[in-house]
Design a protein around this nucleic acid. Structure first.
Lengths: 184, 184
DNA sequence: TAGATTGTTAATCGATTAACAATC
DNA sequence: TAGATTGTTAATCGATTAACAATC
């Protein structure tokens, strides 16, 4: 039987053993004085976090970033399945070769609703990000991961939105470096 | 003279006016009873956060994601400049057309040091992420943005590391959706 | 047993939010 | 002036860290 200690798990994840124990204990009991039972722990996490279901996601915007994500293997065997791609440029849709069904952007509400897609990934230019978000929400998504360098104004407060932008992350690092330099 | 209130700024950024005021006040004074003086505020942020310097960054791993970032216009006029790209596949380097100088991965330490590159973006496969990080650190980078689905073990504690992975973000959204469903 | 490790309660920390005097 | 808005102090909140009894 395989086991792992909170210390070892923390090492792998880059956090302390305290946090590991606290977080796991919230889900139930999976360990004893020999550490955590890996099989039991996996089950506990799967159940507790809802990873026993596979949720469908779609990608809106098939530019460089969007197609990079689309082609990243679609996360096989994971908790997420990419079920559709959208772009406003019809030509781009036609020249694309993938197993994932592609549609024009205006169809977002229809397809999202029809296929019960729950998560949306926004990789369109900043100018069309808000419209894209609204179409996704209209279709009924419950969560949005936004890569466009704009903060999405959430019209439906029960939809979770996470904003991520590469440049902002680099700026953040730059600020940390700068603060450190000034402290020296 | 253009002004903006903390309420309006918070609206744009999706946070409260309290946080805006608190954060800005840390940098100095930029407003009065008419709101913030935009020009003054920009100056204050630029100085306070070190955005008056441009820091160089490099991209290690020119697969789909890496080349998407490389080609994203190199953030013109921003606080960050992409100054080099690296890949372990020599063929890939040769077939690439870009203004940004490209080098084989083994040269990372040399080039980073030579060109005083301060930030590194890791877009290599998981298996080579740790090695890539070590090469970047060897060259002297001060911050790393890691897209590989592995937590980088930081051998140099004075280097800032931010881990980001698309699938994890989607999983996070999935968990939020799941918790909400269970609460209902 | 002795030593290692969990699960949980308490303490600490930092960030967000609230409240409000000061300003013009 | 009256109303709007900042800057700052105090209160709240949640997450991380510390500490330790219980377990085998």
């Amino acid at each position: 039987m395989y086991t792992a200690s909170s210390f070892r798990l923390g090492e792998i994840m880059g956090i302390t053993s305290h946090t590991i124990r606290k977080d796991i204990s919230r889900l139930g009991q999976a360990g004893d004085e020999n550490g955590y039972n890996i099989g039991l722990l996996k089950e506990l996490i799967k159940k507790g976090l809802g990873f026993d279901k596979v949720r469908k996601a779609c990608i809106a915007g098939l530019g460089r970033l969007g197609s990079a994500i689309l082609n990243s293997g679609s996360f096989p065997g994971q908790q997420i399945r990419i079920a559709a791609g959208f772009d406003s440029n019809i030509n781009r849709l036609e020249t694309f070769s993938t197993d994932i069904p592609l549609f024009p952007a205006v169809k977002i509400p229809d397809i999202v609703r029809r296929d019960a897609i729950e998560l949306g990934i926004i990789t369109v230019p900043a100018a069309s990000a808000q419209l894209t978000a609204e179409r996704l929400i209209e279709g009924g998504v419950k969560g949005i991961l936004n890569f466009a360098p704009v903060v999405i104004q959430n019209t439906a407060p029960d939809v979770f939105i996470r904003n991520f932008h590469v440049l902002d992350e680099l700026r953040m690092l730059s600020v940390l470096v700068n603060m450190k330099e000034e402290a020296e």
